[in-house]
Structures are given as C-alpha cells and as structure tokens.
Simulated scan of single mutants.
Amino acid sequence: MQDPGSRRCLGIVWSAGSATHLATGLFFASTIWTNREVQNIRVLLGVLLLALFLLVTFFGLGPVLFADGSMTERMITLGIVIIIYLAIASVAFRIFRKKE
C-alpha cells in the first residue's frame, strides 16, 4: 500500500518523504518495476533504436554513396557512420541481452 503523500508516474512511486523535503521540492523515488513495464520499456527502446538506425542509414550512407565529393571525404564520412553504427549496436546489446 502506498502512503497518501505519494503518486505513481511511469512505474515509479514518488513520495515527498517529509515536510521539509516537500517544502524544498526534493522528492525520493523508489522503483517498483513489474516485468510487464520493463518489457514495454524495452519495446519502446527497440522502436527508438530502429528509428535511429534507419535515420543513420538514410542520412549517413546517402552521402557516402551519392555525394559528389572526393574519395577522401567519402571515406571520412563512412568511418564516422561506422562508428555511429557501432555505438548504436553496443547500446542495443546492453539493452536486449539476457540477464542471468
């Protein structure tokens, strides 16, 4: 049961703690995540990562393949795009790996 001074927002119970904390605006959060909420967050993050991947593909590989710049400029852009892909892949791996 939650105390009357708390409210639930995005799976987190926010409570004021004491009158002094309430007066200063400091709130404490205790996380109460159910498996369903965690699964919903993973789906949302998966959709966001997919959208980010598609945006990097469109705006990153487009200039590499179709730009009229020099070969050096294209290779620098390709290197940066590959670094961005690796960063997205590492974030996705950390989010979606199985926890034991």
Rank of each mutant, 00 (worst) to 15 (best):
L22T: 12
E73N: 12
A67L: 03
A23H: 10
S30L: 06
G46W: 03
L61T: 06
F28Q: 07
R74N: 04
L65C: 03
G69Y: 05
L26N: 13
F28H: 13
T31N: 11
A19C: 05
S30N: 08
R36D: 15
A29D: 13
A51W: 08
L61D: 04
T72K: 11
N35T: 07
A23S: 15
E73C: 06
R42M: 06
G17D: 05
L48C: 13
A16H: 10
I41Q: 15
R36L: 13
L54P: 01
G25T: 06
W33C: 07
G69C: 08
F59K: 07
S18C: 11
L26E: 10
F53R: 13
V38E: 04
V47C: 11
H21F: 13
L45H: 10
M71L: 10
L65N: 03
S70A: 06
L45V: 05
F28W: 05
G46Q: 03
I41D: 13
S18Q: 00
F53E: 09
G25L: 10
T57Q: 12
W33A: 11
L52S: 15
I41R: 14
F53Y: 09
L54D: 03
G17H: 00
T20V: 10
V64S: 01
L65E: 01
T24W: 09
M75K: 05
N40Y: 09
R74F: 01
I32K: 04
L52A: 15
M75W: 13
L45E: 15
S18L: 00
L45S: 11
R36Y: 10
